[in-house]
Computed example of a mutant assay.
Amino acid sequence: MSSSSVELEQAWQDKRWWWLLSPAIPLAFTGSLLAFVWRGQWWCMLLAPLVIHALLPVLDRVLGEDFSNPPESAVAQLDQDMFYRAMVWAYVPLQMIGTVLGAWIAATHVLPWWGYIALVLTVGAINGIGIGTAHELGHKKETLDRWLSKIALAPSGYGHFFVEHNRGHHKRVATPEDPASARMGESFWAFLPRSVWGSWQSAWALEHERLSKQGMRVWHPQNHNLQAWGLTLVLWGALVAGLGWMALPFLLVQAVYAASMLEVVNYVEHYGLLRQKDTAGRYVRCEPEHSWNSNHLVGNLLLYQLQRHSDHHAHPSRRYQALRHFASAPQLPAGYATMISVAYCPPLWFAWMDRRVMAHYGGDLSLVNVQASARRKLMQRWA
């Protein structure tokens, strides 16, 4: 163990009660909906976009990064402590409350178009971050966690993520074959449809293959995609039955926004990074260097340390409270809240990130996961 690692471990302190900030997100955003019901002012529902695109970038900048790692001697105790699992479980019921309240407002209140957009952004943010919660739950072996993952995916209609992320993305990450790994020179707006369609196809193919090996048809009730999508039908069907058809357009639009939040995070996490092939022509094992990492404190506390993505991909079963910083991992210049805002503007993103990709690979473009249509332009720029 290096001396720097020892120093990091010695500096580590358990942030136990700070993890309450993660389930506080749906609580706060739902509170903004209640404030609208009480006050009747549409701007009450602007809390979510203001927090995501304004407050969090400022807090990440002001409070900075935390590079400390838990000592290996503490990992077993951290894993066994039910408090940390409860912090993830708590998100799901609060997420459902926010979704139901948002659908009720959409179906029973007359809103100006800008108020409707604010409502969509609020509930969509709850469920978009809920996909991140489903991500943490879906990696676990416990039955309760895996079903809660599917429930957390129900409001967004993105249940196939349960299959594709665990068995597709983690296998193909940082390769041209992975629909959820962005290529250098590829804008987010080009990446979005490729990732959405490719992930859906992959999830269906993975379940078809798994069930076929067990002698079952792809339409069998054991199909995890069908189970997760079925939960969406139950939830949406119940809301439409109880609130009327006016709830359905709202549910569809907020689901699109929620899914786009996941995909913009996917875009950030592996942009331009490429696993090389060994002498046998197989991709090398995924290491911390194949995912962009961020140690910005506030974002990690709010997102179950999703930003420590390098350790997560190298060690997928490791729980969020024990994820580590690795010096070998490429570091994002800011937290996710800032990065997703920049990703929406391709020229700004390319100006900020392409030079970091090239620096990571020592200026060698042949080592980069490059968008084919942008290769000539990138070669001219980085030759």
Results as ranks from 00 to 15, higher is better:
residue 270 H to Q: 07
residue 79 D to M: 12
residue 12 W to L: 09
residue 123 V to N: 01
residue 296 H to V: 01
residue 278 D to W: 07
residue 269 E to L: 03
residue 68 S to I: 06
residue 122 T to V: 00
residue 132 G to S: 13
residue 15 K to S: 13
residue 130 G to W: 03
residue 340 I to T: 15
residue 209 E to P: 00
residue 155 P to I: 11
residue 205 A to S: 12
residue 175 T to D: 12
residue 370 V to C: 15
residue 273 L to H: 08
residue 96 M to H: 02
residue 286 C to S: 11
residue 169 H to N: 06
residue 103 A to S: 01
residue 264 V to A: 04
residue 176 P to H: 10
residue 61 R to Q: 09
residue 266 N to Y: 08
residue 52 I to T: 13
residue 372 A to G: 09
residue 377 K to N: 07
residue 346 P to T: 12
residue 229 W to F: 07
residue 13 Q to M: 03
residue 280 A to V: 00
residue 328 S to I: 04
residue 289 E to A: 08
residue 240 V to A: 10
residue 141 K to A: 10
residue 318 R to I: 13
residue 380 Q to P: 00
residue 284 V to Y: 12
residue 21 L to R: 07
residue 302 L to E: 05
residue 327 A to K: 15
residue 222 Q to Y: 06
residue 25 I to F: 06
residue 190 A to C: 08
residue 378 L to R: 10
residue 190 A to Q: 15
residue 312 H to Y: 12
residue 112 P to G: 09
residue 265 V to M: 05
residue 227 Q to Y: 03
residue 275 R to A: 06
residue 292 W to A: 14
residue 77 Q to N: 12
residue 111 L to Y: 01
residue 364 D to Y: 04
residue 195 S to W: 01
residue 156 S to Y: 02
residue 243 L to P: 05
residue 30 T to W: 00
residue 270 H to A: 01
residue 107 A to E: 01
residue 83 F to R: 11
residue 199 S to E: 02
residue 139 H to W: 04
residue 188 F to C: 06
residue 207 E to A: 08
residue 144 L to Q: 12
residue 187 S to F: 08
residue 175 T to V: 14
residue 116 Y to M: 06
residue 248 L to M: 04
residue 62 V to A: 13
residue 224 H to Y: 05
residue 26 P to V: 13
residue 121 L to Q: 12
residue 163 V to R: 02
residue 27 L to M: 14
residue 314 A to K: 11
residue 305 Q to S: 15
residue 225 N to W: 08
residue 124 G to H: 02
residue 122 T to D: 00
residue 207 E to K: 02
residue 144 L to P: 10
residue 78 L to S: 09
residue 315 H to G: 04
residue 20 L to F: 15
residue 135 H to N: 06
residue 257 Y to Q: 08
residue 124 G to P: 02
residue 32 S to F: 07
residue 245 W to D: 01
residue 200 W to G: 00
residue 102 G to R: 06
residue 68 S to F: 05
residue 132 G to E: 05
residue 227 Q to H: 05
residue 185 G to T: 05
residue 338 T to D: 03
residue 37 V to M: 15
residue 317 S to P: 00
residue 361 Y to I: 09
residue 198 G to T: 12
residue 145 D to T: 07
residue 41 Q to G: 03
residue 195 S to V: 02
residue 124 G to D: 05
residue 260 S to N: 13
residue 255 A to C: 04
residue 90 A to M: 14
residue 41 Q to F: 07
residue 248 L to R: 00
residue 146 R to H: 03
residue 259 A to L: 09
residue 104 W to F: 10
residue 380 Q to S: 03
residue 260 S to L: 11
residue 59 L to V: 10
residue 94 L to H: 01
residue 59 L to Q: 08
residue 214 Q to P: 01
residue 311 D to L: 00
residue 133 T to I: 12
residue 314 A to N: 09
residue 40 G to F: 11
residue 27 L to C: 11
residue 340 I to Y: 15
residue 68 S to K: 09
residue 238 A to N: 02
residue 114 W to L: 12
residue 41 Q to I: 13
residue 95 Q to K: 03
residue 17 W to M: 14
residue 341 S to H: 11
residue 262 L to A: 03
residue 283 Y to W: 14
residue 286 C to N: 01
residue 176 P to Q: 06
residue 287 E to F: 00
residue 17 W to I: 06
residue 38 W to I: 07
residue 128 G to L: 06
residue 275 R to H: 04
